[in-house]
Design a protein around this nucleic acid. Sequence first.
DNA 1: TATTGTTATACTCTATAACTATA
DNA 2: TATAGTTATAGAGTATAACAATA
Lengths: 153, 153
Amino acid sequence: MGETLGVAAGLVRLSFLVQCVYARSAAAYDLPVAQAQLLCVLKDRPRGMTELSGILHVEKSSLSGLVDRVERRGLLRRTSSLPDRRAVIVELTGRGKAVADAFYDETSEQLLEVVTGLSAADLDHFTRIATRIVLDESVPAIFGDSAGTGVAG
Amino acid sequence: MGETLGVAAGLVRLSFLVQCVYARSAAAYDLPVAQAQLLCVLKDRPRGMTELSGILHVEKSSLSGLVDRVERRGLLRRTSSLPDRRAVIVELTGRGKAVADAFYDETSEQLLEVVTGLSAADLDHFTRIATRIVLDESVPAIFGDSAGTGVAG
DNA sequence: TATTGTTATACTCTATAACTATA
DNA sequence: TATAGTTATAGAGTATAACAATA
């Protein structure tokens, strides 16, 4: 052994690896990464455009086009919010929900394989620390239905 | 306490966080993420187009355009390989090297801040495990000059 | 006036397919 | 024939600025 990367290099390369796995899984569902990400955010509940913009860290104008493309695939629909007639609620269709669930499960599985070589103790420790960082930094809930809805610093 | 994400959610959200930090840092240098990434790969040594294509996981045709745009900024130059006259060697210019170094240092610093809340022991453990995963999976050396030149599975 | 969302525009990034030049 | 790289083309993704409708 001996080779040790710094924290920063470890984080960036790990991130690159995760992106690759995510992208490969998305491609298996014929989805661009951005669209798969949107599906995952909408997986558990409908969201407003401004809300989605904050979660995904994209401008509302960019989001309009992204939602258009996913809508064209029949995976989501725009609904109008009754209380505020300016607002739009974005929600998955039945097919959208099915695709989102399948993609989520498949991606989770592929990611588990990435950490297959770790001991149970290391895996547990690693998960705990990663969770800690992510919650500390208020990373939005772009994957997984549990905690975290804020906007990352 | 109580809130715990699964491994997969932890990995994806951590990756999202790292991407955000990376993107913000790149923006501070007026660089699109892909261009910053290319600079980091070239930071320590020149590379051929096919080699870069494998490291960055992009088609050579896409890479041609990417290299064009960075070249137009005066941050790299194409050199011809003497032994094989088909091959092209891509290397940073003086300014490119300066920008790459500055971006790399700044990004590393920003990423360190992300793990500021961890104890020394946790940070050490985390880094060791992340390094282990990244080396096990042969993640290319897209950041940091140490080990890893293979192509991710 | 402020906010919600869209449209117009321009650029980056990406892949596929067809191509040139060299090996 | 095979490999190195480019060009052509088309589409996705993004931001900025200007706009419409509602609050």
